[in-house]
Amino acid sequence: MTFPTKIAVLLRDDLAVWQRLNVTAFVVSGIAGTQPELLGADYADADGTPYLPMFGQPVLVFEGGPAVLAAAHARAVQRGLACAVFTEELFKTGNDEDNRAAVRAVASAELNLAGMAVHGPKNAVDKILKGARLHG
Rank of each mutant, 00 (worst) to 15 (best):
T5V: 05
F62R: 05
H119E: 14
A84E: 10
A76Q: 08
T34Y: 09
K127I: 00
G115L: 01
V61G: 03
V103E: 08
H135A: 10
W18K: 09
C83A: 10
H135K: 09
A41I: 00
D47I: 00
W18I: 05
A46Q: 13
V9S: 04
M116S: 06
H135R: 12
A132L: 10
H135W: 13
L111M: 10
G40I: 10
L39S: 08
R104S: 14
F3C: 08
V61Q: 03
Q78S: 14
R75N: 02
H135G: 00
C83Q: 13
R20C: 14
P53D: 04
T34A: 15
A84R: 02
S29T: 09
Y51D: 05
R100S: 09
A8G: 02
L113K: 03
L90N: 12
G65W: 08
L134M: 14
T34P: 00
A82M: 08
V103D: 06
I31G: 02
M54N: 04
G48K: 07
G33Q: 07
G80V: 07
G94Q: 13
G40W: 11
H135D: 08
P50V: 06
A8D: 01
G115T: 02
F91H: 12
A72Y: 06
E63L: 02
M1Q: 13
P53R: 08
P53Y: 05
K6L: 08
D13H: 15
H73F: 12
Y51M: 07
V85G: 03
F91G: 00
R79A: 15
Q57P: 01
D13T: 10
L10P: 03
V106F: 13
T87Q: 02
G120E: 04
C83S: 12
L90Q: 14
P4N: 12
L10H: 04
L11N: 09
Q19C: 03
E110V: 04
K127N: 08
R104N: 15
L69K: 03
T93F: 02
A117W: 02
G64R: 02
Q35V: 10
T2C: 03
F55G: 04
R79P: 01
L11Y: 11
E97A: 15
A16R: 15
G136N: 13
H135V: 01
G136H: 14
A82Q: 11
G94F: 14
K130I: 11
A41R: 12
L52E: 11
N22P: 06
L81G: 02
D98M: 11
A107N: 13
F26Y: 15
G64L: 04
V27L: 07
G64H: 04
A114Q: 01
Q35G: 00
D98E: 15
T24E: 03
K6D: 00
L129Q: 01
N22T: 15
V85T: 14
R100M: 12
A84F: 05
L69N: 07
A41S: 13
A25E: 03
H119N: 11
L11T: 12
V106A: 11
L10A: 14
N95T: 03
L90Y: 01
V106L: 12
R12M: 10
A67F: 02
